[in-house]
Simulated assay, not measured.
Amino acid sequence: MEARTTRIEREDGAGTSRYVYRIDGAEAELTFRETGDGQIIIDHTGVPDAFRGQGMGAKLVAQAVEDARAAGKTIIPSCSFAAAQFKRHPEWADVRA
């Protein structure tokens, strides 16, 4: 399955929120929670086999970075995948807590 135009949606929950991409019944997600001091903690990135090799996990993290930057928030990447993405993208240093 090839990814079409990527439309990542944000779903806010009572405790945990997420960014999600859906296509043909499959979902890729990044879950996070916000702290009261302007920080976002990314705690999980999950990409099903249907999306493997398409950079979907990286796109989810990039969306979180873009939104955090726009909101003046910082990110704590506690998820190992998100932490690795931050290491690959030094231009994100301004939003890393």
Results as ranks from 00 to 15, higher is better:
18 R>W: 02
96 R>K: 15
12 D>Q: 14
82 A>Y: 01
8 I>R: 02
73 K>C: 10
37 D>P: 00
29 E>M: 11
67 D>S: 11
35 T>W: 08
67 D>C: 04
94 D>G: 11
96 R>S: 08
48 P>Q: 04
75 I>G: 03
26 A>N: 12
34 E>S: 14
31 T>Q: 14
75 I>H: 10
47 V>H: 03
33 R>H: 15
29 E>K: 10
93 A>F: 06
17 S>M: 09
44 H>F: 13
54 Q>C: 00
24 D>N: 13
25 G>F: 05
51 F>Q: 02
95 V>D: 05
9 E>T: 14
15 G>N: 11
60 L>M: 09
30 L>M: 11
74 T>F: 04
57 G>S: 04
23 I>A: 14
67 D>M: 10
13 G>D: 11
30 L>N: 07
45 T>H: 07
7 R>V: 14
83 A>W: 02
31 T>K: 14
77 P>G: 09
12 D>K: 13
20 V>C: 07
46 G>D: 05
92 W>R: 09
18 R>A: 09
84 A>V: 03
85 Q>M: 14
55 G>C: 00
38 G>N: 14
65 V>Q: 03
75 I>P: 06
10 R>L: 13
53 G>W: 02
28 A>N: 04
76 I>P: 01
62 A>C: 06
44 H>A: 15
22 R>Q: 13
39 Q>E: 15
72 G>L: 13
54 Q>P: 00
50 A>Q: 09
47 V>I: 05
80 S>L: 09
76 I>Q: 07
15 G>D: 12
45 T>P: 03
8 I>N: 05
46 G>M: 05
80 S>A: 15
32 F>K: 08
77 P>T: 07
41 I>A: 08
10 R>C: 13
15 G>W: 06
75 I>S: 04
81 F>A: 07
46 G>K: 04
85 Q>F: 04
14 A>Q: 11
81 F>C: 08
90 P>C: 06
41 I>R: 13
41 I>M: 11
1 M>K: 04
30 L>Q: 05
25 G>Y: 02
42 I>D: 09
34 E>K: 12
36 G>P: 08
16 T>K: 14
34 E>M: 08
74 T>D: 10
2 E>V: 07
1 M>S: 10
49 D>L: 01
72 G>T: 03
67 D>L: 13
68 A>E: 11
17 S>R: 10
42 I>V: 14
30 L>F: 04
23 I>P: 00
55 G>R: 02
45 T>I: 06
26 A>V: 00
89 H>Q: 12
49 D>A: 12
94 D>K: 11
2 E>G: 00
63 Q>K: 15
74 T>E: 13
8 I>K: 08
54 Q>T: 05
82 A>C: 06
41 I>G: 01
52 R>I: 00
87 K>R: 13
43 D>C: 07
8 I>Q: 03
82 A>F: 03
58 A>T: 09
50 A>Y: 12
